[in-house]
Design a protein around this nucleic acid. Structure first.
Lengths: 305, 305
DNA sequence: GTGAAAGCATAGGCAGATCCTTGGGATGAC
DNA sequence: GTCATCCCAAGGATCTGCCTATGCTTTCAC
């Protein structure tokens, strides 16, 4: 079987014109190189050098094969080099999970932070929602992620909360914002809620369900949409109120519903942001980098823990 | 140390998405492939697959390295293929030794014969003279050759005569050609001799020296030139006679000295053509081919043995 | 929920490859 | 002729590669 080691010995011998010199260059004893050359000649079925008493002389076959051997070794070196560069995060792809609203807060800045420090890399910010990210983590498609809690159960996952953001009641009607909103008021509200497809996993929905659980009530969602932007815009036009993490409200309201405001719930509810990865996993440098940068960004918007 | 085997296992695993499937494709047991992957990850210092209970998932590092691994394996395959082609004489260089007058007889036809059968090869017909060829053989720079005998001693060489050519006396003066030329007549002649630089090794000169040895005489060389063509042309203009192998005379006279003729020496002298290579050498297919074709060509011009 | 199947890791053992040292033969320089 | 150089050959130590057997985790079907 052809091996890189054989090719290295071949090239050294060809260039040095001597097995002894080649062995010295490669740091081996002379018989070892001799054996490699013999093995190469046997696997290829050709004679590469004529042994002529003292010294060896390359045959025309050796002349022909030399550029091929050089190409092969160069390609192998390229492989090694590419791995080195990836290891130093000079190149390659960084894939990181981040669900909807966290990405809304910090996504663009996070990518900018990464590219600032590592201009050569590709960045993939994966995940429409928290539970999809969770599934990707579990299946190994993602190494680490920033998710919102409480969410689906996290068996086999290591979850480290890094920040929390209050969940607030948002309305374009000032009379709805005069006092903190209780469970009873919430149950009576007409709501425009985003993230319809994920309503069973979404952390804000989960919080609201927990809040109303003791009262036997359910919030009325008058309108269900996918995008928080659409929900906010509809809320601004008076089609209903909505419930959002405060960070999202502060990002979206000035742009989409300048006349709307928000107020706390009573009791206050909090959405937690956490770093998640498989329990017991050794994180790559790239994942550690993403975790560090994402945490820093989230903590500039939400409340650090 | 990086190895082709590791890269083969890596690619098979990447494409199959499973160590077990890769092992089956490669014809190994699963733990063997597993070990190779682990070794590759260790030598490169990166994680290529995430082990996730059932199955493995390639990391983004694996995505990045895959094309490099493919290039490397393709280059290695190219090396193997090139060797195969050389072995079948489909490509590569054929180097063969042939000294002056033999090349004059058969050189162009020999090259044509080779290219007819093996259109992809390069051909090198090496050697200004017999003794240079001999030295190249001894040093290993040439594998085999066609030389003229008697020449320098052939210790360590295997010499197989394949044809002989009579050495004849050539003159533009018909009176010189009426009878076979004896040693006495030869010693009195004014000669124009080619191959000046090699006069001590040249086989025709050696024959003449042997012929005159018993008489205590030396041939008078009025003019010494390098090329047989020049010698024949000067002879044709009457500046002297010359001595040549008959094959050379028949090639050169019609073109360069149409009024000249030739006659035998007494006793007759013969130049022998022989195939030569290092004693005990195993000849490559290319060398065997050249020997076969060169022998056939020489035997169509000179007298086969 | 439970058992069966799939897939990877680990452990132990065997065969072959790799590498070294020592010694012998051929060649070339003086 | 003598010595130095350079290759091959042989023997032994170590390492690598590969196998089988086994255990653990995840996945899937009932």
């Amino acid at each position: 079987m052809l091996s890189l080691h054989q090719l290295r010995c071949f090239l050294a011998t060809y260039e040095q014109g001597s097995l002894t010199a080649a062995a010295e260059e490669l740091g081996y004893a002379q018989p070892s190189v001799s054996e490699q050359i013999r093995g190469l000649e046997q696997t290829l079925g050709v004679q590469l050098f004529r042994r002529v008493g003292r010294g060896v002389i390359p045959t025309t076959v050796a002349d022909t094969l030399r550029p091929h051997a050089e190409r092969t070794l160069a390609a192998a070196e390229g492989t090694r080099l590419a791995a080195q560069q990836v290891r130093r995060i000079e190149t390659g792809t960084i894939r990181f999970g981040m669900f909807g609203v966290a990405r809304l807060y910090a996504g663009a800045d996070l990518v900018a932070d990464v590219l600032e420090r590592h201009p050569g890399v590709r960045v993939e910010l994966i995940g429409q929602n928290s539970s999809e990210v969770h599934e990707d983590l579990r299946r190994g498609r993602l190494e680490a992620a920033m998710i919102a809690m409480p969410s689906v159960t996290s068996e086999g996952m290591e979850v480290r909360p890094v920040a929390r953001d209050e969940v607030v009641y948002v309305s374009a009607d000032p009379t709805h914002l005069e006092r903190p909103v209780t469970a009873r008021r919430l149950a009576e509200a007409q709501l425009v809620m985003p993230d319809t497809s994920w309503r069973h996993d979404d952390s804000v929905r989960t919080l609201l369900r927990q809040m109303l659980h003791g009262t036997g009530l359910n919030p009325t969602t008058r309108i269900e949409v996918e995008d928080p932007e659409i929900a906010v815009e509809l809320m601004g036009r008076g089609y209903g109120d909505t419930v959002l993490p405060r960070g999202a409200a502060e990002v979206l309201l000035p742009r989409l519903a300048p006349h709307a405001g928000y107020v706390s719930l009573r009791p206050r509810l909090y959405d937690y942001f956490a770093v998640v990865h498989r329990a017991g996993a050794v994180l790559s440098p790239a994942a550690q980098l993403m975790i560090e940068l994402a945490t820093a960004r989230i903590q500039r918007i939400a409340e650090p823990l």
